[in-house]
């Protein structure tokens, strides 16, 4: 048992040293595996902002994750083919520069989140779950029926997209790119949670009437938070596409939304670092159980069942001193 601050520090320190362990064990796959963990953790932190702190159960975050992936894939595809992207009468060049790709990803994910959030936030509870799921499924089926970008087979990237002076094909370099994004995401969300927007979001989750009676519009608060959440998840999708050098409709499917939600719940909602632990255990369980049995999802489901019954605050609650509480500040 330790303090939450100490655990958070140890998590970041451990992740920082992963490439070193990987080199010592002479197994570079470990670094790639942890790149995936970090990317899913970023997506989880994005979802946790609205799920844990805002009480919005979005079952459609694969829409943003997938859009991030497809923006990355499509821009790289057109760069490699020397064909401009045609939208109506306009033509745009593709690019393989990650700095531009990330900016485009953030813009497109935010616009999509604004659109989905605007309609979804008119509903609550189970209807909110269903409408976010419906939007994501619309994009999923659209991507399947879009032959230009591979349809059901997906889209391959011959090389990872680039950053000047860095070799992104090197697994360790790419790992640290993901690590830096994780740190940026943590700092951003921590800022938000302590900001007027964050405190309004947490209050809106608990008591909308009280929030309205002090002059705050909870719908606006939720919409802005939903957009930020979507943008973070979109960015994670972009990194995921580059990690695998492949993007397919799978990352837009409801299973992907479920995976992101599971790792948030597994690690611990209401905790900023919960999704990192959740992603770690999810991927490790996938690898470990996957090596033992084909039906590893069954055992994963069993573990989640135990967690929901006995440790609602997730794995974090086993490791830190302070017990379950819906924290008011991070």
């Amino acid at each position: 048992m330790m303090s939450e601050k100490k655990l958070n520090f140890l998590i970041l320190l451990f992740l920082l040293l992963v490439p070193l362990f990987s080199m010592l064990l002479n197994d570079i796959y470990i670094t790639t595996l942890f790149s995936k963990i970090i990317i899913l953790a970023i997506a989880g932190i994005g979802l946790n902002l609205i799920l844990g702190y805002g009480g919005m159960v979005s079952f459609g975050h694969a829409a943003f994750f997938g859009l991030g992936g497809y923006v990355t894939g499509i821009l790289a595809f057109h760069f490699n083919n020397y064909e401009p992207i045609q939208i109506l009468v306009f033509e745009f060049e593709g690019t393989n520069q990650l700095l531009f790709i990330w900016i485009f990803t953030l813009i497109f994910s935010s616009i999509l989140a604004l659109f989905i959030g605007y309609f979804s936030l008119r509903t609550t509870g189970v209807y909110f779950i269903m409408i976010t799921l419906a939007f994501a499924q619309m994009l999923y089926y659209f991507s399947i029926s879009w032959p230009t970008y591979g349809g059901e087979d997906g889209l391959s990237l011959s090389l990872r997209n680039q950053i000047p002076f860095l070799n992104t094909m090197d697994p360790i370099t790419f790992f640290y790119i993901c690590y830096v994004w994780l740190i940026i995401t943590i700092i951003l969300v921590k800022f938000i949670l302590n900001s007027p927007l964050g405190i309004s979001l947490k209050a809106s989750k608990e008591n909308e009437d009280r929030v309205r009676s002090v002059g705050i519009n909870p719908k606006k608060v939720k919409l802005i938070s939903f957009i930020i959440s979507g943008a973070i998840t979109g960015l994670a999708g972009s990194l995921y596409a580059d990690l695998n050098r492949f993007v397919s409709p799978t990352i837009l499917s409801w299973q992907m939304s479920g995976e992101i939600m599971i790792l948030v719940i597994l690690g611990g909602m209401f905790r900023l670092y919960g999704p990192i632990l959740g992603a770690f255990f999810y991927i490790i369980l996938e690898q470990f159980l996957g090596g033992i049995t084909e039906n590893w999802q069954f055992w994963l489901g069993f573990i989640i069942l135990l967690e929901v019954l006995y440790a609602k605050a997730g794995i974090m609650s086993f490791l830190i001193k302070d017990k379950y509480d819906e924290k008011t500040s991070s």
Partner: peptide, 23 residues
């Protein structure tokens, strides 16, 4: 005190600010 902080920033209208540390 955080209930009061919430209502003071609601009154002043800056509640959508995502960066200032309210505490």
């Amino acid at each position: 005190i955080d209930n009061l902080r919430l209502s003071l920033m609601g009154r002043d209208g800056g509640y959508l600010n995502p960066l200032n540390n309210i505490y």
